[in-house]
């Protein structure tokens, strides 16, 4: 995965938060569509990757710890998306 400097990552995370906020405020959500929900959790996944790999410094940790935290992130977000899809049925 691409590695950003600490300062660049911080700015990207703020930008990502702005995107989530804009999606929430713009009325894109709440129309029984998976697309905006995929987008907000895609952004969330990107932010989580940045925090886990670089802020927590797990990029340089034993692989087991990296996989445990990234696995948690991917599993939780995946299940949230599944639950949202079930709510649309």
């Amino acid at each position: 995965m691409v590695r950003f400097s600490t300062n660049s990552l911080w700015l990207l995370l703020l930008l990502a938060t702005g995107i989530t906020y804009w999606l929430g405020e713009s009325g894109q959500l709440g129309h029984a569509s998976m697309v905006p929900v995929f987008l907000i959790f895609g952004v969330s996944l990107f932010k989580g990757l940045g925090v886990v790999l670089d802020f927590m410094d797990l990029r340089h940790a034993p692989a087991l710890w990296r996989y445990l935290l990234l696995g948690w992130l991917v599993f939780v977000i995946g299940m949230i998306l599944l639950a949202y899809w079930l709510g649309l049925q």
């Binding site: 989530t20 959500l29 925090v51 410094d57």
Partner: peptide, 26 residues
């Protein structure tokens, strides 16, 4: 210091999932 930092980052990581889930997803 690294130990305390790890705990702080966890709090941040949790909010990164909590915010879109509770405040945004609809």
């Amino acid at each position: 210091l690294e130990t305390g930092a790890a705990f702080w980052h966890m709090v941040d990581l949790l909010w990164i999932v909590l915010f879109p889930l509770i405040y945004v997803m609809r």
